[in-house]
Amino acid sequence: MSWWGRKLEDRERWVLDPLVGLGPLRFGMDSDEAEAALGGAREGNSQVAADGGCWVRYQDVGVTGIYGPGMILAGVAIDAMEGPLVRLREVELIARVPSQARTEIGNLAGREDAAVRVNWSGDPEIAAWGVSMGTALEYGISSEGRPERKDGMITSALFVSAELAESPYETGPVLHWCDVREREKNGGSWPVKTDQERSHWDWSPLKAVGPLRFGTTPQQVADALGGEVPAGRQGHFPYWWWRRGAAGQWTLAYDRFEQTGVTAHYWYPQGLPVLGAVTVHGRTGPQITYAGTPLVGATPSRLDEAMLQHIEDHGLGLLFTPSGSPIPPGLQFDINAIRTGDTAISEVTFASADWEL
Rank of each mutant, 00 (worst) to 15 (best):
G145P: 03
G134D: 15
L38G: 04
G65R: 08
G215M: 11
A34V: 07
Y266D: 04
T216S: 14
A351T: 13
R302P: 06
V229L: 14
R244G: 09
G341R: 12
V63T: 00
S346P: 01
E228I: 13
Y67M: 10
L308C: 08
A128F: 00
D255T: 05
V348C: 14
T293Y: 11
N186W: 08
I154C: 07
A165F: 10
S31L: 03
P218L: 05
S346K: 01
V131S: 02
V280W: 01
E356C: 08
R26M: 04
G235E: 08
I335G: 10
E184Q: 11
V229Y: 09
G134L: 09
Y239L: 06
A224P: 14
D32A: 15
G110V: 14
L275R: 14
D79A: 12
G285W: 02
T135W: 11
R42H: 08
S121I: 07
A162E: 03
G245M: 10
C54Y: 04
I327W: 08
A344Q: 14
C54H: 05
L225T: 09
R181V: 14
P211R: 10
G70F: 05
A253Q: 11
S99E: 03
M1H: 13
F320S: 05
P329A: 00
E356M: 09
M81P: 00
L25N: 04
V160M: 01
L88G: 03
L319F: 04
D151M: 04
P329Y: 00
P328S: 05
T263G: 01
G285C: 00
R198C: 04
R183A: 01
G276D: 01
W55F: 13
L108R: 12
A109G: 07
T349W: 01
L308W: 07
T194F: 04
V262K: 07
R89M: 15
V97G: 09
F27Y: 15
V278A: 02
W250K: 02
P322R: 06
R96D: 15
G215S: 13
G53I: 09
V91E: 12
G292T: 03
S161E: 15
L175I: 12
F27M: 12
I154P: 00
L275Q: 15
L212W: 08
Q59I: 12
R11C: 00
I311M: 10
A157Q: 05
Y67W: 12
R233C: 10
Q332W: 09
T321A: 02
R57Y: 11
V209D: 05
E12S: 14
I78T: 11
W267F: 11
Q287W: 06
V229R: 15
R96L: 10
N119F: 11
G210I: 12
P230K: 02
R149Q: 15
T171V: 12
L252G: 02
G215Q: 13
L137T: 02
G227H: 13
R146V: 06
G65P: 10
V278G: 03
H200A: 12
E43D: 06
E182S: 09
R233K: 08
L137R: 02
W177R: 04
N336L: 11
E184T: 13
S31Q: 01
F214Q: 07
